[in-house]
């Protein structure tokens, strides 16, 4: 096996240089997914059949098609058909966010369904407005139990960020690819990227299980 520590050390700073892009894409993508996922989950319970139908159709379609193709669609097709053109990073973050919003919508849905029916009835009996019912009664009870699942999706989003390389975003994997085409030594750069991804996702996973443990503790009190 050919592995040179010296070369690996010289490559590492170049990779860490763009780790920020990976982390920012993860963070923004996840925030969009959380926000838009909530909108989808709430609209999915609308009184109007048209809205329910549209929202559920959107969720089904986005969930069942690859993120990569969606990214190409946003990056190549939207500027042509609608004249909207965004930077590669923005497109990537929006693509990631939209894709995973459909997953988070399902997570929220399970959380909302977990809230007892009596809570809705009590809110109505106390003459709470719809908005207040959602923000003061339902969501504060629906969200905490699903926080660990949401955390898992943070890890999933993190691991999907290399896809942004396809639409020319310079993140860790595309940087590694550049280094490889410069030096013709794939072993060290790709192995390092693999290790970096593994370490960060294991760290995130540890944080999530800590959160899970804390939640379980709070519940047993």
């Amino acid at each position: 096996m050919i592995w040179s520590w010296e070369y690996a050390w010289s490559v590492l700073p170049l990779l860490l240089d763009v780790i920020g892009t990976t982390l920012l894409a993860t963070l923004f993508g996840f925030l969009i997914a959380c926000t838009f996922g909530m909108v989808l989950a709430v609209l999915g319970r609308s009184r109007f059949r048209v809205i329910r139908w549209t929202v559920n159709g959107f969720i089904e379609f986005v969930r069942n098609t690859p993120l990569l193709v969606q990214l190409f669609f946003l990056f190549y097709a939207l500027p042509l058909s609608l004249g909207i053109s965004m930077s590669a990073f923005t497109t990537g973050v929006i693509g990631l966010g939209l894709h995973y919003s459909t997953y988070l919508a399902e997570v929220y849905r399970s959380g909302i369904n977990g809230v007892e029916k009596g809570q809705w009835e009590a809110a109505r009996a106390l003459n709470f407005s719809k908005q207040r019912t959602w923000t003061r009664i339902i969501l504060p009870q629906a969200i905490p139990p699903i926080l660990p699942i949401m955390g898992n999706y943070l890890i999933v989003v993190f691991k999907e960020t290399p896809l942004l390389a396809a639409i020319t975003v310079m993140e860790m994997l595309s940087r590694a690819k550049n280094i490889v085409s410069r030096d013709w030594r794939p072993t060290e750069p790709y192995t390092l990227v693999g290790i970096l991804f593994l370490v960060i996702s294991l760290l995130l996973a540890a944080l999530v299980s800590l959160l899970e443990y804390k939640m379980a503790q709070r519940q047993s009190k």
Partner: peptide
């Protein structure tokens, strides 16, 4: 399970396709 769930698929793919030939 922990290893292969933790590595991003694309990174794994690159590693198998580009690095393994060197071994």
């Amino acid at each position: 399970v922990l290893t292969f769930r933790g590595i991003a698929l694309l990174v794994l793919l690159f590693w198998i396709y580009y690095v393994l030939p060197y071994m």
